[in-house]
């Protein structure tokens, strides 16, 4: 498990049913592309977050396959229409096998 890998998410705490809300997610991760070489000329192996999934009340909202061309500290902003109160679950999958999670509840009136 890489050190210093931390997810952050921004989700409104409440919304009216049918509102379009904006969700922002970030995970601090170097995203070593596999293109760089070290001081001795050896290729630094690829080590990235390769997948990001956002679900709402177990329904998939977005599922992203990331390649090394995604910048350091992968950032995703997207919209959602929430029909009811519930919980967002966010999951990030690392090349090294680690899985990072975050969750946010939203109250829908």
């Amino acid at each position: 498990m890489a050190s210093g890998v931390k997810p952050r998410v921004k989700v409104p705490k409440k919304a009216a049913a049918g509102d379009v809300i904006t969700i922002k997610t970030l995970i601090s991760h170097k995203m070593e592309s596999g293109q760089r070489k070290d001081k001795d000329g050896k290729v630094i192996p690829r080590s990235i977050i390769n997948r990001f999934v956002a679900d709402f009340n177990d329904q998939n909202l977005i599922d992203v396959i990331l390649e090394p061309a995604i910048s350091t500290n992968p950032y995703f902003k997207f919209e959602a229409i929430v029909p009811e109160s519930g919980e967002f679950k966010f999951t990030w999958y690392d090349d090294d096998g680690a899985v990072y999670e975050a969750a946010k509840k939203i109250k829908v009136s």
């Binding site: 931390k6 952050r8 970030l26």
Partner: peptide, 11 residues
């Protein structure tokens, strides 16, 4: 949130 510096502020 958008400001990439805040990853380091958290640190």
């Amino acid at each position: 949130f958008d400001n990439p510096a805040f990853v380091f502020i958290d640190q």
